[in-house]
Write a protein that binds this DNA or RNA. Structure first.
Lengths: 337, 337
DNA sequence: CTGTTAGCGCGTTCAA
DNA sequence: TTGAACGCGCTAACAG
């Protein structure tokens, strides 16, 4: 900057002023400064500015991973909002590990990001330490239990109820639940929804938690179908489970929906291309991130008011396709239930 | 920091020293300092450190978007490498627009990121301005033509040849190419591969570029199949095209591979679940990002040697599944062509 | 082994 | 309208 000042024959302050444009500067000197800037193609140093202002204009995002399209979508919508406000986003992954999450969150704090949006990793969160108190944090998709962070969620329980009820409406009575570890908050909620729907219909819950391994899913399903009165329908509680289940059923050569009906939680790209197209409970994936980002920015704008934590729950919807039988193949004929 | 120093009854330099641990400090004072740090739960200010050292320990990543799993995967593998080296990653999207890309890249430069990894947006790149000369840049998936940036690519042309040849080997003679705008570098390369394979077999190329709109794809395919001697096979040049084509064929109720055979470029999650499973040319998606990141870090480590730009081309492979006919439906019977 | 000085690049404060 | 001095938090270089 001093180079620019020298070249323009002015003080650094004048340069600073034309850059920020708040204060009046003579047209003439202003022009000279601009010229000097162009000639040296000078760029202001945002690091110095951050240090000076105590504002980095950066927010942090921590997601379990980016290969899950759900998380990637969240990250994308957040970063779009940030871009609109001329903020940068520092993004990293926790690998679904609270320890990594903690380390990365602290790294961001040291970097003085102004706010943090986190999809908390599975397990007991280490985010409750006092050093996290001073920076606004919004959690997404899952809460940090016992924390006072803002939180954006979807209707997990109701969504599961919706999906299971759909199966019940199609006269299924033995409906098995398939999902990831019940440690995960979202899984717990969906299990609750499943149980609620089953009990309301006086049916027996049948819950199976598996890992993300396709092999394990195959094994689980094989066993499930080997019993004397096997389930006639599966409720899969997230898109990875749905995928693995479809995979397993495919390799076991089991027909959907004739032999097994399926409803999945969370929509996915190929859901309507697969034969048969899969009926799912859809979450408003893109809205989720946007809302979270907007909430965070409103926190940053707050004078200093310690408004109490908000919890926003977004609605889900049932997308009926062809994996539950009664609708048959939409391209052929429809049969009422 | 001065608070810590005061509380521990030492100078700030001593605090700095115990933090960095390079220089000897008496065990006793060291303990006092550590204690003070813990009591105040002090965290070093990375912004100040960045300003001081002229090193931000941040790298930037710009991808067209994050909802494309290919781009998301690249971002993820890069950020994993960064994490290993205690670097943060600033990630943003160009929305496939060179102007946005330029703005975001400059924002990152002002922030003094140490290096930049970019999947260049479609169109004429504005990244050639002189301000980009001082920061190491690695481009990914697509080159910036005429630039001297390092570049990590995959075998686009050979991949397309492989895929088309596979179709030819299955006795297809009228093979249509379906892809996005030929403006895109990768598309051009794949078209070249397609043409090369067709001409080598003395067949007539039949190229159709469409947008990413499913409706337009439907329209295109409908027209294609309406002619007197319609194609018997499609080569789809990226996963979006493949998806849209599958969608269209599904809604036109056309059987794969009986009526149309399909090969796609770029593998995708559901490719082996769809009936029939789709034969694709697979790119080493995860390796791509890792290599790019490692190359960037090696650039950062270079004393100042202006080593000449590297261009690394990663191999692709053909993954044969069931969408080309001769293998028939693996689960039923096989019919030789 | 430890403290002091100085400066990274910028912008607020105060004078001119 | 413009400039000079100071400090944001940190650490290399030099005393002590």
């Amino acid at each position: 900057m001093s180079d620019v000042a020298k070249l323009a024959g002015v003080g650094t302050m004048t340069v600073s002023r034309v850059l920020n444009g708040n204060v009046h500067v003579t047209e003439e000197t202003r022009a000279r400064v601009l010229e000097a800037i162009a000639e040296l193609n000078y760029m202001p140093n945002e690091v110095a500015r951050s240090l000076r202002d105590q504002r980095t204009r950066q927010i942090g995002i921590i997601v379990p991973n980016l290969h899950d399209p759900f998380f990637a979508m969240c990250a994308q919508s957040i970063s779009i909002v940030a871009k609109e406000r001329a903020y940068s986003t520092v993004i990293t992954t926790s690998d679904e590990d609270p320890a990594t999450e903690f380390v990365e969150a602290k790294r961001m704090l040291r970097r003085h990001i102004e706010g943090l949006i986190i999809i908390p990793a599975q397990g007991k969160s280490k985010l409750r330490d006092p050093e996290f108190e001073r920076t606004p944090i919004v959690t997404l998709d899952r809460p940090v239990i016992g924390s006072s962070y803002d939180c954006i969620l979807t209707e997990n329980k109701r969504g599961a109820q919706l999906g299971v009820q759909h199966l019940i409406d199609h006269n299924h009575r033995r409906i098995a639940y398939l999902g990831l570890s019940a440690q995960l908050w979202t899984m717990k909620e969906r299990i609750n929804g499943y149980i609620a729907a089953m009990e309301a219909a006086k049916l027996l819950p049948d819950i199976h938690s598996v890992t993300d391994s396709p092999a394990e899913m195959l094994q689980t399903i094989r066993q499930l179908l080997a019993i004397k009165t096997p389930p006639t329908a599966f409720f899969c509680s997230n898109n990875l489970t749905t995928r693995n289940a479809l995979h397993a059923l495919s390799s076991l050569n089991i027909k959907i929906p004739d032999q097994i009906a399926i409803v999945g939680f969370d929509d996915f790209e190929m859901a309507d291309i697969i034969k048969p197209a899969v009926t799912v409970v859809r979450q408003p994936t893109d809205v989720l991130g946007r809302i979270a980002a907007e909430l965070l920015f409103s926190r940053l704008a707050e004078a200093n008011g310690i408004e109490k934590a908000k919890r926003i729950v977004l609605p889900v919807e049932l997308v009926v396709r062809d994996s539950c039988g009664s609708h048959g193949n939409r391209l052929l004929k429809k049969t009422a239930v």
